[in-house]
Design a protein around this nucleic acid. Structure first.
Lengths: 119, 119
DNA sequence: CTGAATCCTCGGCGATACTG
DNA sequence: CAGTATCGCCGAGGATTCAG
């Protein structure tokens, strides 16, 4: 119900907003990385590298940079020997949780719908 | 809060579920197409082609097929001259509305957070 | 009108090696 | 440990043309 609305101006704005969201979340790894950090609140580079099965260090490095640019995570360098780098979600990053939860729920329902059985 | 949970089995399932969702929604066009159909409940090929700015017919055709495979939309061919083809959301397709709304809202907030002002 | 077919480009992503 | 550098594949997606 009520997903129709004729206001085209509003419609265009919404489309842009969605594209913004998708750009941030797109790609093969972003959400997996966020989940990894989220799971432990704080996580090191190599920890995430282990958590996110299949990712290469190059990709991880790139994705982390993008997430930081988008102010979703924060990078902290510790003066240990050798260096330790911690990543954690920002306040803004934490607001993604609703979406992530919805995506999870819908994913389960979708699988049932398509394959006819759950995980 | 409470996005951490130690159960790794559950964690893996959730990751798969999210990947399922993202696979369905990924790419440059899927959500825009869904929104277009949704806006009018029923929409023809060339209508969507106009709604979704920038998409090529090849892409539209491909995306529509995928959406149909995923049982999100339904294709109806009318015996007109020339042929008319209608696309509409299925019940399952309509369940995406929550996610789409969340993505829209978050997109707005994100823009404020990053650029410092709204659309 | 609704696509399918073809050709081409560009960037995402992987593999491996190297650095402070 | 936490990345960078380099090479290269492959598929997403654009432009154009053809077909029923």
């Amino acid at each position: 119900m009520a997903c129709n609305q004729i206001e085209t101006e509003e419609y265009k704005k919404e489309m842009k907003a969605i594209q913004d969201s998708m750009d941030v979340l797109n790609g093969k790894w972003k959400i997996a990385i966020i989940k990894s950090i989220c799971l432990y609140n704080q996580r090191r580079f190599s920890d995430i590298l282990n958590d996110v099965v299949g990712i290469s260090n190059k990709m991880l490095s790139k994705e982390l940079k993008e997430l930081e640019t988008n102010k979703l995570i924060e990078r902290t360098v510790l003066n240990t020997q050798p260096v330790t780098v911690l990543y954690e979600l920002t306040k803004h990053g934490l607001t993604l949780q609703t979406i992530i939860k919805d995506l999870t729920d819908w994913g389960f329902r979708h699988r049932e719908e398509i394959i006819g059985k759950s995980l």
